[in-house]
Write a protein that binds this DNA or RNA. Sequence first.
DNA 1: CACTGTGAATGCATTCACAGCG
DNA 2: CGCTGTGAATGCATTCACAGTG
Lengths: 223, 223
Amino acid sequence: MKRSNHRAPSRSPAARLVPEACVTRLSLYVRELSRLETQRVGYVSSRRLAQQLGLTDAQVRRDLSYFGQFGTSGRGYEVQRLHEQLTSILGVAGRTWNVALAGAGNLGSALLAYRGFQQRGLVFKVVVDADPQKIGRTIQGLPIAPTQRLTELVRQQNIHIGLIAVPVDAAQAVCQQFIDGGVRAIVNFAPVHLEVPPSVRLRSVDLAIELESLAFYLARNHR
Amino acid sequence: MKRSNHRAPSRSPAARLVPEACVTRLSLYVRELSRLETQRVGYVSSRRLAQQLGLTDAQVRRDLSYFGQFGTSGRGYEVQRLHEQLTSILGVAGRTWNVALAGAGNLGSALLAYRGFQQRGLVFKVVVDADPQKIGRTIQGLPIAPTQRLTELVRQQNIHIGLIAVPVDAAQAVCQQFIDGGVRAIVNFAPVHLEVPPSVRLRSVDLAIELESLAFYLARNHR
DNA sequence: CACTGTGAATGCATTCACAGCG
DNA sequence: CGCTGTGAATGCATTCACAGTG
């Protein structure tokens, strides 16, 4: 994850100091701390956190140190407190972000069904699809609207984040509709590079790329 | 990912010289060259290739230089020839790789439906699911088998690559079944860290992580 | 004594910049 | 002249290693 997107400008001075990769892991820490909290774990060491997430203990400490000093020498980190602090830093504490989804196919449906988003305050408000057959049906309690209405709905519902889960050929057009509607952050799941103005933060997730590149290593090894 | 997985040992001496990130982009180049080839484009410059993929021209040249010298000064790269060379290097020229999918939910269905895999010689041979309701149904022409049979089927069908698209709680068990069946490469789509022996190459793709980490930047900017 | 927090060292990946070639 | 291929420079990210602390 790693990724799969390759460039991203940082804008605010506060954000510039924290490595991009670290911010990505920040949400990983939040996830794991949620889990530990429901398991009533009181303290956790960088070592244990690292093992659970497949990182090194030094990396966990370094990452957390970008945001402040949360630990206690000899004890580790207090789970509940660290969880609170990190959700606050991540910007998901005590508020919600509105999300719109373009593309109600299998991938879009998978995204809608993922419970983790709700838990982090990411709320799906709009779903659109190009297939006339699907218009009007509801999915996860949301009505599917036609793609032509995307820009309008984005504005109307004050959407913060756009999700692109449409076929490659439709992706750039949908992206433009998001931008016209005023979203400042987009996650693209179509396997194609999209053009956005520098004011919009674009992340791409390529479902296929890891699988496709594996052959390189398989072909080189035994058998 | 940036994408999203964080560690991966390289084993063969040939592979050690080529950066991991570059190999990931290798399949990106192959994709784009396929496209250019169907469009009957004869030559392409590093500049143009880069623009199309959202990279820099220097990076394209550097990446390709790891594999050999394919270009002509003043002209660029011959599309068809470069495409052939790269598919050969990627290990997808003139052969196929057998893939098994665990989890026939929305995400699994999206993966099965993606036409790009077939084009790169990645052939789905096995699909399993835990839901008794789904057993026996066919999906993209493949019958869904029960998860208990996974290890056996993997062996029987000589599966090279395993895909995990099951819920978090089932992921590690399914992973073990793949390993027991003898696969040496796994792509995991469940948002959890999996343990594998060093002989198995594991890649993780986290669908949610990019979206979840976006709030950090949104919260910090204007509005 | 177990663990954090962090300078300093290391290791990758990207970008610069330009010699050399067709 | 346009474009490749690549040393050298730069910039990030990770890891080491240990002083400092409850």
